[in-house]
Design a protein around this nucleic acid. Sequence first.
DNA 1: GTCTATACTTCGATAGAC
DNA 2: GTCTATCGAAGTATAGAC
Lengths: 197, 197
Amino acid sequence: MESSRRTGAKDSQTRSHLLDAAEQLMLEEGYAAVTSRRVGHKAEISPQLVHYYFGTMDDLFLEVFRRRAEEGFAQFERALEAQPTLRTIWSSLSAGPGSVFNLEFVALANHRKAIRAELASYAERFRTMQLDAITSILAARGPLPDGMTPEVVLVTMAGVAQIIALERALGVSGGHDTTLAFVEQFLDEPGTDGSSA
Amino acid sequence: MESSRRTGAKDSQTRSHLLDAAEQLMLEEGYAAVTSRRVGHKAEISPQLVHYYFGTMDDLFLEVFRRRAEEGFAQFERALEAQPTLRTIWSSLSAGPGSVFNLEFVALANHRKAIRAELASYAERFRTMQLDAITSILAARGPLPDGMTPEVVLVTMAGVAQIIALERALGVSGGHDTTLAFVEQFLDEPGTDGSSA
DNA sequence: GTCTATACTTCGATAGAC
DNA sequence: GTCTATCGAAGTATAGAC
């Protein structure tokens, strides 16, 4: 017996369909296209059910984000356990639709504080997890050049992965090939300062 | 004698005020907050004038972008002429509100093709200009490590600058200090492979 | 050349029947 | 748990008075 709102069961099929539709709309047309009416229409469900299951649109956005985040999180953990390598970390940073998705959410977070908080918390959890992993991986590879800490490597890889994803979405590709080749070279290297073998 | 729309004189004060208001709204609350009503209200001008001066909202967005782009472009050219250094390029990549601005526009471009085209064209022009500059600057610094071309350095710097700006907007700061310190070290180095002095 | 009035659409959200 | 009916607010855009 709580508030009458927000009752839709978590395992409802309808609920999942609404989340799917919202996610797809967001990916294809941006967050501004995610309206209760359009979500309902895409899911072939009456728009009012959006409010029945999620209350406000902000809550819908949060649920979409959480579902994705948990999924990405679990996926990264599995991949890391199977292959605890630099390449696994790089893959998690440059993986498919995730980057566009993140971008859309960051833009959304600009004026919705509840979403910003959730995003920030997730980003920090993810970063910490990646840092732990990369620290032990790099330790096994020998000493790093002066000033280049595991943190630096991680932030740099994340930045490179992101700008390439972003520019690709824009249709710009200048410098991507050579940069990706350099990343590959770094991933393969047994040592990090060029003094290989 | 052309189409009756889009008549507002380019040098109109009213027009400038509308652009200012739109830009500010976009920076503060994201692109979704840039509506004809809100822009008009912020500029203390009737919302209908937005359509008189710009036709559609898309045209308004384009004008806002162009004004910023030209400004940033000219500024970069001046800075580079005064100080043709790596640091000047880094500054142009990490300069204040520009990054947030870009981010907002990229998100917007996701579902407005006219804006995507403009953004892509600008990004390419800017990248080419930066590449010319960084190539000659790095040439003077001596040979680069294996695989690290000027392009790679540029894309990497751009990525680092961007992810830091993005995370900062989100309130996340893990790893920024050490990464920025590393960038500083790289900017100051007379050589690039650690064999300084 | 500038601004008012206004048409039309879509938005989020709620009430209540079934 | 789902749907119909509906409210008030806000969105883009145009017509036409001044």
